[in-house]
Amino acid sequence: MKAKDLQRGLEAKLKLRRKEEHRHIDYCVMTASGQIALPTMIRVSPADGDVPARNLRGIATALGLRDEELSRMVRCHISGRCASLAICNRLLHFVSERLAQQGVLFMPGLEAMLSSIDRLLDELPDAGTRAPTTDESFLMARCSQELTALLPDTHVGQVADRIHRLIVSRADTNQA
């Protein structure tokens, strides 16, 4: 994949803030008010030419996507809304894992992340009226399945439920 195509996908679909460095470009998640909700989580390196497979894999994982799903997002088969829901799913699993490792010491981090995820969900792009693509359906089905495991969790269950409902409501609307 060309770095320029990937950059266009990240900027146009996910509205990530671009920060150019000497040999690479970093991206972080911004809110509508211009505040940074997450530390830098994506680095495209090098800034030109083809993106190495390892870098692509790292970016896909950062976004909660599989390699193939990332390339489909760049090719507009997956919307910014679905990709944002996948990010929220990944972030929730990240804090859930960290909480399991660090226990109560991580509670402030957990609360901060839940607030970031809430903010991302508040600013989710509209679902629109078109039917989901096959790629979107597969991605959302996977996220939904992964979120189900977090639903009973007393710490992250509520936010997992919110993401889950946003996924399911879209599927219901389109089925109707």
Partner: peptide, 14 residues
Amino acid sequence: SLADSSSGLIGYAE
């Protein structure tokens, strides 16, 4: 990077 934008951080970045 965070120090450069420290007044505009929320949630996990903060």
